[in-house]
Deep mutational scan, measured.
Amino acid sequence: MDETGKELVLALYDYQEKSPREVTMKKGDILTLLNSTNKDWWKVEVKITVNGKTYERQGFVPAAYVKKL
């Protein structure tokens, strides 16, 4: 869990989004888990830094590609 009590997951593999509802992740990324009720796709939040500014983006990743921490 992070400092706000949200559950975290670890990306076990790289994943490139294939639709606007998904998010890209790299092996080793730590993501915030938002919803894991679907056994195949989990909703996560990723933080992306571009030119020194951090953005948060929500989307789905394959559940088999992440592990709860």
Rank of each mutant, 00 (worst) to 15 (best):
M1F: 12
M1L: 13
M1P: 15
M1W: 09
M1S: 14
M1N: 13
D2R: 05
D2Y: 03
D2F: 04
D2I: 09
D2C: 14
D2Q: 10
D2W: 05
D2N: 10
D2S: 11
E3I: 08
E3Q: 11
E3C: 12
E3A: 10
E3S: 11
E3K: 08
T4D: 13
T4P: 13
T4M: 14
T4V: 12
T4H: 14
G5L: 12
G5W: 11
G5H: 14
G5V: 14
G5E: 14
G5T: 14
G5D: 11
K6V: 14
K6M: 11
K6R: 14
K6I: 12
K6G: 09
K6D: 09
K6H: 13
K6L: 13
E7M: 13
E7N: 11
E7T: 14
E7K: 09
E7P: 10
E7C: 13
E7S: 13
L8T: 08
L8Q: 10
L8R: 11
L8C: 10
L8F: 15
L8G: 03
V9A: 09
V9M: 04
V9R: 01
V9W: 04
V9Y: 05
V9Q: 00
V9P: 00
V9H: 02
V9T: 02
V9I: 07
L10T: 06
L10N: 02
L10S: 04
L10E: 10
L10K: 07
L10M: 15
L10C: 08
L10D: 01
A11Y: 02
A11E: 01
A11Q: 01
A11T: 04
L12K: 05
L12C: 07
L12V: 07
L12G: 01
Y13I: 08
Y13T: 07
Y13C: 12
Y13N: 09
Y13D: 07
Y13P: 00
Y13G: 05
D14S: 08
D14V: 02
D14E: 05
D14L: 02
D14P: 05
D14N: 08
D14G: 06
D14C: 05
Y15K: 01
Y15N: 01
Y15H: 03
Y15L: 01
Y15V: 01
Y15P: 01
Q16Y: 15
Q16A: 12
Q16S: 11
Q16L: 11
Q16T: 15
Q16E: 14
E17G: 15
E17K: 14
E17S: 15
E17Y: 05
E17Q: 13
E17H: 08
K18R: 15
K18S: 10
K18N: 10
K18D: 05
K18W: 03
S19T: 12
S19D: 11
S19L: 08
S19A: 08
S19I: 04
S19P: 04
S19Y: 06
S19R: 08
P20I: 10
P20V: 09
P20E: 11
P20L: 08
R21H: 14
R21G: 15
R21N: 14
R21Y: 14
R21F: 13
E22P: 04
E22H: 05
E22F: 05
E22G: 10
E22C: 06
E22W: 03
E22S: 05
V23Q: 02
V23R: 01
V23T: 04
V23K: 01
V23I: 15
T24Y: 03
T24F: 04
T24D: 03
T24K: 04
T24H: 04
M25L: 08
M25V: 10
M25Q: 01
M25S: 00
K26V: 09
K26R: 11
K26D: 03
K26P: 00
K26Q: 09
K26C: 09
K27E: 06
K27M: 07
K27Q: 09
K27R: 11
K27F: 04
G28A: 02
G28T: 01
G28S: 03
G28R: 02
G28E: 02
G28K: 02
D29I: 02
D29T: 06
I30E: 03
I30T: 06
I30G: 01
I30S: 02
I30R: 05
L31I: 07
L31M: 14
L31N: 01
L31Q: 01
T32Y: 11
T32N: 07
T32E: 09
T32K: 14
L33T: 01
L33W: 01
L33N: 01
L33V: 06
L33E: 00
L33R: 01
L33Y: 01
L33M: 03
L34Q: 03
L34V: 13
L34T: 04
L34I: 14
N35V: 07
N35P: 03
N35W: 06
N35F: 05
N35D: 15
N35S: 13
N35Y: 06
N35Q: 10
S36V: 06
S36N: 09
S36W: 08
S36D: 15
S36P: 05
S36Y: 07
S36M: 08
S36L: 04
S36H: 10
T37N: 13
T37V: 09
N38A: 07
N38T: 06
N38L: 09
N38F: 07
N38K: 06
N38C: 08
K39M: 10
K39P: 14
K39T: 11
K39V: 10
K39W: 07
K39E: 09
K39F: 08
D40M: 14
D40Q: 13
D40L: 13
D40S: 11
D40Y: 15
D40W: 15
D40I: 14
W41S: 02
W41F: 06
W41Q: 02
W41R: 03
W41L: 03
W41M: 05
W41T: 02
W41E: 04
W41G: 00
W42D: 00
W42R: 01
W42K: 01
W42S: 02
W42Y: 07
W42T: 03
W42V: 06
W42L: 04
K43H: 09
K43Y: 15
K43V: 14
K43N: 06
K43P: 01
K43G: 05
K43D: 03
K43F: 15
K43T: 07
K43C: 10
V44Y: 00
V44I: 06
V44S: 00
V44L: 03
E45C: 11
E45A: 14
E45L: 12
E45K: 11
V46A: 13
V46F: 07
V46T: 15
V46Q: 15
V46P: 02
V46D: 03
V46M: 09
K47I: 13
K47E: 10
K47N: 10
K47W: 12
K47Y: 11
K47F: 11
K47S: 13
K47Q: 12
I48W: 11
I48K: 08
I48P: 03
I48R: 07
I48H: 08
T49K: 11
T49H: 11
T49D: 10
T49S: 12
T49L: 12
T49G: 06
T49F: 12
V50W: 09
V50E: 12
V50M: 13
V50R: 09
V50P: 03
V50K: 11
V50N: 10
V50S: 10
V50F: 11
V50L: 13
N51I: 06
N51H: 10
N51T: 07
N51M: 11
N51F: 10
N51C: 12
N51V: 06
N51Q: 11
G52C: 09
G52W: 05
G52M: 08
G52F: 08
G52S: 07
G52H: 08
G52N: 09
K53E: 13
K53Y: 15
K53T: 13
K53S: 11
K53V: 14
K53A: 13
K53N: 14
T54M: 12
T54I: 12
Y55I: 14
Y55W: 12
Y55R: 07
Y55V: 14
Y55E: 10
E56M: 15
E56A: 15
E56D: 13
E56C: 13
E56R: 15
E56F: 15
E56N: 14
E56S: 15
E56T: 15
R57Q: 07
R57V: 07
R57T: 06
R57C: 05
R57P: 01
R57G: 03
R57K: 13
R57W: 03
R57M: 06
R57E: 04
R57N: 05
Q58R: 11
Q58D: 07
Q58W: 08
Q58K: 08
Q58I: 11
G59Q: 01
G59E: 01
G59N: 00
G59L: 04
G59I: 03
G59P: 00
G59T: 01
G59D: 00
F60I: 06
F60P: 00
F60D: 04
F60R: 03
F60L: 09
F60G: 01
V61L: 02
V61E: 00
V61T: 01
V61R: 00
V61Q: 00
V61C: 04
P62A: 02
P62S: 02
P62Y: 02
P62C: 03
P62K: 03
P62I: 02
P62H: 02
A63E: 03
A63M: 04
A63I: 03
A63T: 05
A63K: 06
A63S: 14
A63V: 05
A63R: 10
A63F: 02
A64G: 11
A64R: 14
A64Q: 11
A64H: 13
A64D: 09
A64P: 08
Y65N: 05
Y65L: 12
Y65W: 06
Y65E: 02
Y65G: 05
V66W: 01
V66Y: 01
V66C: 12
V66D: 00
V66M: 06
V66K: 00
V66P: 00
V66I: 08
V66E: 00
K67M: 12
K67V: 15
K67H: 09
K67Q: 14
K67L: 13
K67R: 15
K68I: 14
K68P: 09
K68Q: 07
K68F: 08
L69M: 10
L69K: 04
L69R: 03
L69E: 03
